[in-house]
Design a protein around this nucleic acid. Structure first.
Lengths: 127, 127
DNA sequence: CTGAATCCCGTAGGATACTG
DNA sequence: CAGTATCCTACGGGATTCAG
């Protein structure tokens, strides 16, 4: 995910939070990392785990994660081809974060979905 | 951030991770939450804390967070107007997550930026 | 001061087809 | 099997102006 930082500039980000968002902030990156937390996965394995992601987007996001050294891509020169993706040591350090995201979502998903359906209308207290 | 779920459908997401991404996955949402963790902030206060965010985007993302009951918006009917944003109890539960993002970024930012400049070229081990 | 309203654009992301 | 290669569109996001 590109931010407003000039290309090729090794410049400190305004805030570390912003940097983290840049690394795992893609639409599918967190989910990819989550599925890799349980072990090495082949390309089509990931596709099956995430049916909503198109093949193209999966490839792109995998490449971005690879470019940040968060995941490793290992190609087996066989027929048929085989490619395995796994977390790098750096990627492993993200595991607690991804787990926290999963836990938070599991805990509050229901409440938030309900709130969206029926938001509080009692702003009257302010008036 | 919209995902491929039909509007108005209170349907469980494929994975809680995806849901969390939807809530805090906007380009600036995590950063907004981070700044609200240190206390209530006025609109222009947030603008000053995040100069790269345009006024329009700040407003939009604040509204989305509000719609998910993650932040609260309190309007003081004065002249000049005054609006305060703060974390709701639900938003507070995100604090550990945001902190973890900040810590991770602070810890690994340098390494990753360096890696981007000079990625490993020794894929030769596989061949 | 805190927005809303417009206008505009780049690109993230989707659908589909083709390939080593 | 694991991708490219195109094509296309929606929306994220910027700049500017107007308003209560």
């Amino acid at each position: 995910m590109k931010l407003g930082i000039p290309h090729g500039e090794v410049e400190a980000f305004a805030c570390p939070v912003t940097f983290t968002v840049e690394v795992i902030g893609g639409k599918w990156k967190s989910l990819i990392l989550y599925h890799l937390m349980s072990g090495t996965r082949r390309f089509n394995e990931l596709r099956r785990l995430m049916p909503e992601v198109t093949q193209r987007m999966l490839t792109l996001q995998l490449r971005e994660l690879e470019a940040d050294n968060v995941i490793a891509r290992k190609v087996y020169r066989e027929v048929p081809p085989k490619v395995e993706y796994s977390l790098t040591p750096l990627g492993l350090t993200l595991a607690p974060l991804i787990s926290a995201m999963r836990d938070w979502g599991a805990t509050h998903e229901h409440t938030i979905l309900a709130y969206r359906e029926n938001p509080k209308s009692d702003n009257s207290t302010d008036k």
